[in-house]
Computed example of a mutant assay.
Amino acid sequence: MLIILDSIIYQLQRAGGISVYWSNILARLSNVSEDILVDIFGNPGSGNIFEDADLVSSYRSERYVSLFLQRYLPFWPKVRAKGKYIFHSSYYRTDFSHQAINFCTVHDFTYEKYSSGLPKLVHSTQKRVAINNADVIICVSENTKRDLLEQYKSVDPGCVYVIYNGVSDNFYIINDEDASVEIEIKFSNPYILYVGDRSSYKNFSMFMDLIDSRPDIGAVIVGGGELKGHEQDWAARNIARIEHFMGINESSLNYLYNKAHCLLYPSSYEGFGIPVVEAMKAGCPVVALNCSSIPEVAGNSAILIDVLDSGEFSAAVSRLFDIDYRSQLVSAGLVNAQRFSWDNCFEQTFDLYRKAFSEAKSG
């Protein structure tokens, strides 16, 4: 069985949930003992923090002379494979060869719900082509599957599979005797952790309002690019109790989860919500907005707030100063996190590769 993988996501983002997903698929595929051939297409030098440097030297290249063409046009290798093969793109590309068995992983519908104008048109068009030409569609949650079937009435539900994202084994509770300072924090206040993008639907403005109202608490922000505009003004007002880290590794992030008072996750929409599970596995309580995929992923192991209100979130943060309540929530989170494994994610994905290839060969 030949599997062709398109790693273009590494060129499109420096970090992010899709990169985490793709790197875990690639890492496990290289360890499969079955009789398979794997061709990975990509471009070296992406700067993506999750890209495996050991795999870069084995990348194959396409005919396109620019990333722009490669990004928006169908897969076009220099030499076409003979016979049936699996084609799986990391980000909504399609192989129109009649020999290709197209796989498409759908992570969310953020662009469709929260973007507008040309960016929405371009993204949605390419995504529509990928979904409509996919032989197998993988959704990362039941919530994403519902969104897919609502938006694409012509898609056969029988070709849509839910395979949950996993969580890295690099997230765990640090024993005090083994703990070393992975990353320096300049203040001593208990801190709330915010991880990821700060687009409008992530509701970072509410996070800022909460910190403004709580001089007893600090804030540690991870990722999301440089603070800009009103975010910079807010950080300057609270400079003595704000830290912002970018491009840190999982070991450092695990340390931040371990030492945080909680992870605050006020996003209005998620396809999955990997930081929620990472935090739980690291023993960090989670306070999140009760919407989209979050209740599906968090279960009964987080404080879920029904309304986007800084006062409601602040009250939840205060509840976590109760040692007994906090301990109960941490224990529940550790149990819940066991539902999610990158090994399980890969095994289910690889089973679909085998099933689709077998059916195509016999058909």
Rank of each mutant, 00 (worst) to 15 (best):
I40D: 01
D322N: 15
T125H: 15
Y194R: 07
K145L: 12
G45S: 02
R146Y: 10
L193C: 04
F272Y: 07
R93N: 11
K202S: 05
D309F: 05
K281C: 06
L334F: 07
G224Q: 12
D306A: 07
G363C: 14
P190L: 06
S314H: 03
W342D: 02
E278K: 07
L352D: 05
E150T: 10
C262P: 02
S124F: 03
I4D: 04
H88T: 06
F272A: 02
V307D: 13
T110C: 05
N170M: 03
V220W: 06
I25M: 11
D343I: 09
F321D: 06
M246V: 13
A316R: 07
L253C: 03
S301A: 15
L73N: 02
V140E: 12
Q338G: 11
G16E: 04
I185E: 06
D197F: 06
Y59L: 00
G17R: 00
P275Q: 06
S57Q: 12
H98R: 15
M208K: 08
S252C: 14
E34Y: 05
K361G: 09
S89W: 01
H123W: 03
A130Y: 07
L263A: 12
K84E: 02
P295I: 13
I217R: 05
G83N: 08
T94A: 04
S358A: 13
S90W: 00
R237N: 11
F171C: 10
K202D: 05
M208Q: 09
S205A: 15
P119L: 09
C284W: 12
A356V: 11
L12G: 03
V32N: 00
K78T: 06
V330D: 05
F313C: 08
I185S: 08
G117Q: 12
C262D: 00
K145N: 13
A81D: 01
R241K: 12
S318L: 11
S90L: 02
R146I: 14
W234E: 02
M208Y: 06
N344F: 01
I25R: 04
V160S: 01
I131A: 05
S331H: 11
L320T: 11
L29P: 10
D233K: 14
A337K: 07
L2M: 14
E226D: 12
I163M: 14
L118M: 13
L26Q: 00
D169L: 04
V307M: 11
F313G: 03
S213E: 15
F87D: 01
K259Q: 14
L263E: 10
S23M: 01
C284Y: 08
